[in-house]
Simulated assay, not measured.
Amino acid sequence: MSLVRRAALHGALSDPARLRIVDTLTLGDASPSELARLLEMPSNLLAHHLRVLEREGVVDRRRSEGDGRRTYLRLVRGALDTLGPPALRPAPRVLFVCTANSARSHLAAALWRRASEIPAASAGTHPAERINPGAVAAATRHHLPLPRVRPRHVSEVRGREDLVVTVCDRAHEELDLGADIHWSVPDPVPAGTTAAFDDALEEIGRRVDDLARLFA
């Protein structure tokens, strides 16, 4: 769906009264008189809002099979499905990149494997010798399987069709990776505390879940 079309839908729902109408019709169909009564809204005002919603293809109406003088309003199936951002390009794998490939990128890849069937990998711009113990401990606390693999440079790992997600500012800014997505997640390694690693894991987890939904 085009950006202009999405903007029109958002505009149609920007009025609180129209949003109330949509919320009410989410539960079931209703006649205009029933809607007016449920929402305690004057019929002329309701008619105005319904014209906007019908014009944008959010609501339609059908004639009653009982009383032919009555119509029932209903949400158009799928009309609101495209309000969010457009789906991402198909990708055979998601590659998470940070600087040392010792914490955030490994945690991101592990969280992704739990959220999606699309394969994931991780890499760094300056790989460390090993995965940081704080990342291992955080994964253990949250029952997150974390493969014990050595950190690797992005040039060794990156595939042509990978969807690249940088999870640290330095990696994003240091090299022209052509990253598809960037997440500015604070590095937990300098602090080295349980809270720092848990905070990073929680933030990455939220972002992973949001991204995985775009592939659904």
Score class of each variant (00 low, 15 high):
207 R>Y: 02
93 R>N: 09
170 R>G: 01
79 A>K: 08
195 A>C: 00
12 A>F: 01
206 R>A: 12
142 H>N: 13
8 A>Q: 13
40 E>P: 00
115 A>P: 04
165 V>Q: 14
31 S>R: 11
43 S>M: 12
64 S>Q: 09
46 L>K: 09
126 H>N: 05
55 R>D: 12
184 S>Q: 13
13 L>Y: 09
132 N>M: 02
199 D>Q: 13
186 P>L: 03
57 G>F: 00
26 T>P: 00
211 L>F: 06
190 P>K: 08
18 R>C: 03
129 E>Q: 13
102 S>H: 02
124 G>Y: 02
61 R>F: 05
15 D>R: 12
17 A>C: 01
13 L>I: 04
92 P>H: 10
19 L>N: 12
30 A>N: 02
31 S>K: 12
101 N>M: 03
175 L>P: 00
125 T>C: 00
72 Y>Q: 05
136 V>A: 14
88 L>V: 09
137 A>N: 03
172 H>L: 04
1 M>H: 11
191 A>I: 00
104 R>K: 15
142 H>M: 01
87 A>F: 04
129 E>V: 10
47 A>D: 14
70 R>N: 09
33 S>I: 11
16 P>H: 04
85 P>E: 13
172 H>I: 02
212 A>I: 04
160 R>H: 15
126 H>F: 03
155 S>M: 12
210 D>R: 15
191 A>R: 15
69 R>D: 14
98 C>G: 11
